[in-house]
Design a protein around this nucleic acid. Sequence first.
DNA 1: GGTCATATGTTAACACTGTTAACTTACAAT
DNA 2: ATTGTAAGTTAACAGTGTTAACATATGACC
Lengths: 200, 200
Amino acid sequence: MKKSNNHYHHGHLAESLLDAVDEIATQFGIEAVTLRGCAKRVGVSPASAFRHYSDKRSLLTVFATRAVNQLADSMETSMLQAQDSGQDALQAVCMAYVQFALSKPAFFRAMWREEMIYTQDPDYLVATQRLASYLQQGFVNTITDEDPCNFSPQEMLAWSSVHGLACLFVDGPVARDKGMEEKLAIAEAVLTQLTPVLTQ
Amino acid sequence: MKKSNNHYHHGHLAESLLDAVDEIATQFGIEAVTLRGCAKRVGVSPASAFRHYSDKRSLLTVFATRAVNQLADSMETSMLQAQDSGQDALQAVCMAYVQFALSKPAFFRAMWREEMIYTQDPDYLVATQRLASYLQQGFVNTITDEDPCNFSPQEMLAWSSVHGLACLFVDGPVARDKGMEEKLAIAEAVLTQLTPVLTQ
DNA sequence: GGTCATATGTTAACACTGTTAACTTACAAT
DNA sequence: ATTGTAAGTTAACAGTGTTAACATATGACC
């Protein structure tokens, strides 16, 4: 947090670049994110980013990891709220998933761009596993509990349908003209259809 | 099909470029597709592509449309086969969806890249509506039949879950180490869970 | 068959991209 | 104070989409 009167050293460049990705992606979409653009926004030379990230892809990987954790945070709070008020926790978690995708589409896209990020990155993997764990809630006593990447058909169904909904809303031809509330209503209707299968 | 001895005019450049996109995307992924790369592969100058496509994005839009129609074709044949052999047609259509995504991941990605294609393109829209119609099969006597973009919760559930499965397999952290047969088995298990809801 | 408009190709340039190498500056430990 | 290192700059590289100016083959019309 030290601030020098001389601005040769930025001090928090790594994080500031992430914020720049955030802003540009939010305004103009993930495809518009450019290393030079981020550097210019931060007020720094184009090459400086490479002191903190070996790659553009590395920067986007960290950004994606951040986004996954934001989504997981949102799911966690929704889950806790539902548990306090005695509502269906799984449904709340699923709705949080869709809501995040709708309100931050660029972030949601960045999370799953296999070709734009290093999907083998340890931090990224940890984040996605954390994400998955919230969708496995309610299925604690399923048979396979050893491998955290192994899902029961029920768990896969939950994740698949909510992920499909989010993707179809964000990148698909579904409900393009409709507003956010309508889309959330559709999601709620779809997930309600699903609850008898998931809570058996 | 006429072939001149002088090669100044290529003759089928528009389609050949699409084939180049196909090959490069299959080999190196959609992100590796480059106008100049396609032109070089076809044996033509970089600027020639602009006589047939106003944009890189236009080229990718036509490619995506082509891919959507290929998927729809595959779903149609699966549906007909299932109807002939008395099997569940919807399940067959869904499995064809997942299978296509797994065997042609670059194509599947290209279909839904909102920021890389013109999603308002008429041909693209027609193709996606055709695709959706196969997933609406079996729900013919639902209430809303006027707007082809309007789906019942059941229809949305079918599309969402199958689309989510495909996306999670292609770009997600699910079953990365597993082979195609195992993934198809997972998909089958998930969809089987779903049939009671869909065939009520 | 010759003329000529047009469709379709080429070339050369533009600004922009990610990335690297060589250099410079500030900080922090001795 | 010296000096090694972390973190910035500058200048260059090849590669990208795109355009304008030019060139050539095709096909329609007389």
